[in-house]
Design a protein around this nucleic acid. Structure first.
Lengths: 150, 150
DNA sequence: TATTGTTATACTCTATAACTATA
DNA sequence: TATAGTTATAGAGTATAACAATA
């Protein structure tokens, strides 16, 4: 069996851990969990109307987790939910102006910390890595050929 | 601010999610959580005596999380804990023979699924990616120059 | 009937602090 | 006094199933 440290999930986890060490204190200072920030960021950079399902996929959160996060963010006045008039099953999610302000407040700190990673790793190199990660994430790994769970 | 999908933590998370989709059903079939499996794998590939602190670092688990996972794995007879005679504060962790058997049982399935990723992404390409991820994880990103949380 | 989202439930992990035993 | 590990506690996420509303 391949060595533990050479395993892809561990390598991804460790790399993410290194990066997140830089961002966590910043998020904590704004009383945001990682997942809450993912939701705000996803909404902030969405160019089209976004329903709860879209947000769940963008943020890699399961619907039940997202539901509770949205309740929390709505209570704090950072997001608004309203049913899609054309399909009332869908819940459209938007940033409130307060939510937008929060993103604008955190963004510069985030960029500053991001630039530390770019400086340490190399900007071009980081871009190449991101491109590879994107391709990896898009792989279709349907388990045909294995015993086919589910 | 850079686009959400281009953020490094998100790219790492998404890539990991794609990979883990392949492994999760297998682990569930063996009644192992991701984190429990990380502990077993770390112990299995350790070449030297391993104390709880080592395991925590190897598996990227906080000590309190690890403590409870070790209690669980010990109750299931998969690991053993005993104090280091030369420093009784240290708790040395080993796989029991049953734990070794579990790893031997899961390993081939794991390798099989890993080979699906290699086939889809390219073996050499994956090795290069792992190398980059390793370098990224090893970066010293101490936040000197920022406002210095902590 | 299928889909979207929420709620229910049980379990697990995270994170910080406090504590115990040992050094 | 410092260190290693555990325990306490609160909060949050994961995962599956069940449910309500809508299509």
């Amino acid at each position: 069996m391949r060595s533990f440290t050479a395993s892809l999930p561990m390598a991804l986890l460790r790399a993410r851990e290194t990066a997140m060490q830089l961002f966590r204190p910043m998020l904590a200072a704004h009383e945001l969990t990682e997942q809450q920030w993912r939701v705000l960021r996803a909404l902030s950079s969405a160019h089209t109307p976004t329903d709860a399902g879209d947000v769940a996929e963008l943020t890699v959160l399961l619907p039940p987790s997202l539901s509770r996060i949205l309740v929390n963010l709505e209570e704090r006045g950072l997001v608004a939910r309203r049913p899609d008039p054309s399909d009332q099953r869908r819940n459209m999610i938007t940033l409130t102006s307060s939510g937008q302000a929060t993103v604008r407040e955190v963004a510069p700190e985030s960029e500053q910390r991001y630039s530390i990673i770019e400086a340490a790793f190399g900007t071009d190199r980081l871009h190449r890595l991101l491109s590879e990660l994107h391709d990896l994430a898009e792989l279709d790994l349907s388990t045909s050929g294995t015993e086919g769970n589910q």
